[in-house]
Simulated assay, not measured.
Amino acid sequence: MRHFILLLLFSCFSSFGQTKYFSHLAYGKSSQQVLDLYIPDGDLKNVPVVILLHGGAWTMGGLEYTSKHAQDICNKGFVVANVDYRYINDKISAKDLLADIGAAVSYVSDASGKYGYAKTGYHIVGISAGAHLALLYGYTEKSMKSITALCAPSRLDSTEILEFLKKNGLLSTIEKLAGAKFKANGSNPAFVAISPFKNISNMPTLLIHGDADPLVNVSQSQNLYTELKNKGVETKLIIREGKGHDVGMNSPDTEIQNINDITEWIKKHNN
Rank of each mutant, 00 (worst) to 15 (best):
L6K: 13
L8R: 11
F16I: 14
T19S: 08
Y21I: 06
F22A: 00
S23D: 03
S23P: 03
G28V: 01
G28C: 04
L35H: 09
D43A: 11
L44V: 06
A57T: 10
G61S: 10
E64M: 13
T66Q: 13
H69K: 10
Q71A: 02
I73A: 08
I73E: 00
I73L: 08
C74L: 02
N89W: 11
D90Q: 13
S93T: 10
S93C: 14
A94D: 04
A94H: 06
D96Q: 00
D96E: 10
L98Q: 06
I101K: 09
A104L: 08
S106A: 14
Y107L: 14
V108A: 11
V108K: 02
S112T: 07
Y115V: 01
G116K: 06
Y117W: 13
T120D: 13
T120A: 01
Y122D: 12
H123N: 11
H123D: 11
G126T: 08
A129N: 13
A131M: 05
A131K: 03
L133H: 14
A134Y: 01
A134G: 09
A134E: 02
L135S: 03
L136F: 08
Y139E: 01
T140K: 13
K145V: 08
A149H: 05
P153K: 10
I161M: 05
L162I: 12
L162P: 06
K167S: 11
N168R: 12
L177T: 04
A178D: 04
K183Q: 06
K183Y: 02
S187W: 00
N188I: 00
F197T: 03
N199L: 03
N202H: 04
N202K: 15
M203P: 07
M203F: 04
P204Q: 13
L206G: 05
L215D: 12
L215S: 14
T226A: 10
E227Y: 04
V233S: 03
E241W: 00
G242A: 02
G244I: 09
P252C: 00
E255A: 15
Q257P: 00
Q257R: 11
W265N: 05
W265R: 09
I266R: 07
